[in-house]
């Protein structure tokens, strides 16, 4: 893939949610979510995003083989954003051994809900199962106990503490064992 080619879309569905590629029409909604102080406080960057920055980010995203950004849909309603990017700079996702997933649930109705695990399960399954990644990594603020608890539940282990940040990592075996009970809750029959 050259830098100018637009990536083919990837849609993931399961565990009651759908992840579809972020579209231009989603940008203002996502920018408002991202700039919300409640969401921003947990981000590594505290900078607010302008419409121009958001548009430029989207333009780069279209042809960037090293990352993917999805809108999370539950019952056809957008509730947040999920992302993956290659840890090693310049390595396309389909060749990456280390991938960094990201997630925020913007809809407060689902933040303390088991549903918050669903997009992560889809992404992790995709990274380990489809992309063939050998490790997932994330960096979390040391004081973000909720995110650390969430990731520990998925099998992540703490690798390094530095400057108020914690680097955590997850391999496919730990993920498989740790995610099984969560998947069981989110894979039961639905009423509809």
């Amino acid at each position: 893939m050259t830098d100018r080619e637009v990536k083919p879309p990837v849609t993931l569905s399961g565990y009651q949610v759908t992840l579809r590629d972020v579209a231009r029409d989603d940008l203002e909604m996502i920018r408002n979510w991202r700039n919300d102080p409640e969401t921003r406080q947990h981000m590594l960057s505290q900078e607010t995003i302008s419409p121009e920055q958001q548009s430029a980010w989207f333009d780069r995203l279209q042809s960037d083989p090293c990352q993917r950004q999805w809108l999370i849909l539950y019952r056809d309603k957008p509730i947040g954003v999920a992302s993956i990017k290659s840890v090693d700079e310049g390595v396309p996702l389909d060749a990456a051994s280390r991938v960094e997933p990201g997630l925020y649930i913007a809809d407060l109705a689902y933040r303390g809900n088991i549903l918050a695990f669903a997009p992560t399960l889809l992404m992790n399954d995709y990274c380990f199962g489809q992309l063939g990644a050998s490790e997932l990594q994330a960096t979390v603020k040391e004081d973000n106990e909720a995110a650390l608890r969430y990731n520990r539940k998925l099998g992540y282990r703490e690798v390094e503490h530095q400057s108020g940040l914690v680097r955590i990592a997850l391999g496919p075996e730990d993920y498989e064992v740790s995610s099984a009970p969560i998947k069981a809750f989110l894979s039961r029959p639905v009423r509809r």
Partner: peptide
């Protein structure tokens, strides 16, 4: 009991 996933999610 064993709840459906929808009910689990709706239990707010």
């Amino acid at each position: 009991v064993m709840m459906d996933t929808d009910d689990i999610i709706d239990m707010s």
